[in-house]
Amino acid sequence: MTAYSIQTRDLNLWYGKFHALKDVTVNVKPGVITALIGPSGCGKTTLLRSFNRINERYPSVTTKGEIEILGKNIYDSDVSLSELRKSVGMVFQRPNPLPISVYENVIFGLRVHRRRGELHRRQLDAIVESSLRDVQLWDDVKDKLRTKATRLTLEQQQKLCIARLLPQKPRVLLMDEPCSALDGEGIERIETLIESLRHKYTILMVTHNMGQARRASHECLFMLLGRIVEHAPTLEIFLNPKEKETELYITGRYG
């Protein structure tokens, strides 16, 4: 049994000619929250997006190297993208609920991954309720399940975007600056939410906010110009960084 849920070896990625990820080798542990920090444009989103292979939408992307998630090389020929993305859920920087009802948003994954008629109305109701409760959204939207999800507030939308991952029982949650569209209290609530989820999932979270990385993560990955510079427990990175660049970055000297 592998101790890491995400492992990459010498991962390189190009957008056309632009070398966006350079020899990235990381090991991400399950059950803890790993924060991915680094200055703008250093490739955080790109790295995150290679874990569910959603980068491959862009025809110009070429990838080299290995990514193993839960012990399986995701570039193996028998891997199905749909199954991979079912297990590796993603939350985007801008909340992007689908333009359908709140209810349908939550069970979208089930509609896609389960046979029609496999789940009865009552089961679906129960799943919707428990998923929304898990993200502390149930009380806000329980009377609005039929309204279009795009009408909710930004914070509610972002919570919904997390909630809709849960019914598919993902293993890994990738979060790309999940709080950047929110205000102070919203950020705090989402952070608490993420913390409450961490026991069940491997969570990898991109953030620009040093305070958030410090508050909400257990391990930190510092990236610079497409490379991993340092990977260490959060406290260590903040109190006692090994690399010069890390120190400069977390003390706000650049980036």
Binding site: L70, V79, S80, S82, E83, S87, H113, R114
Partner: peptide, 14 residues
């Protein structure tokens, strides 16, 4: 069940 490999439903989906 090999992780991330298609099940019966997934094959039908394809």
């Amino acid at each position: 069940k090999e992780p991330f490999t298609p099940g019966a439903l997934e094959r039908r989906k394809r």
